[in-house]
């Protein structure tokens, strides 16, 4: 229901609660910060839905997932090796 897109916060207007974000195409676009402003800092990776910042992506959690998934991916390599042998 809600297409969320990752973007990097480049600039924040604290007073108005605007963030300028880059979705990865190098163009800055405005978005409202609908969530707690103190959660958002310059350089943060956030999720934007229809011009509204709805969440911050936790890099720790992302790295945690990466760790788990890499292990899974490795397991699949081993499984393949086993099945080939």
């Amino acid at each position: 229901m809600c297409l969320g897109v990752p973007a990097v916060v480049v600039e924040i207007d604290e007073e108005k609660g605007y963030a300028e974000v880059d979705y990865g195409d190098g163009v800055l676009r405005k978005a409202f910060v609908g969530i707690s402003l103190d959660r958002i800092n310059r350089g943060d990776l956030v999720i934007v839905h229809a011009n509204v910042v709805i969440s911050k992506i936790s890099l720790e959690e992302a790295e945690e997932i990466m760790k788990i998934l890499k292990e899974i991916a490795l397991m699949s390599d081993e499984e393949q090796k086993l099945s080939k042998n």
Binding site: I65, K70, D77
Partner: peptide, 20 residues
Amino acid sequence: KFEILKEVEILLRSRDVANL
């Protein structure tokens, strides 16, 4: 930041992980 995200995305769209 996008690089990290890309890495995560690659894994979250990985055929190996999905297979498993």
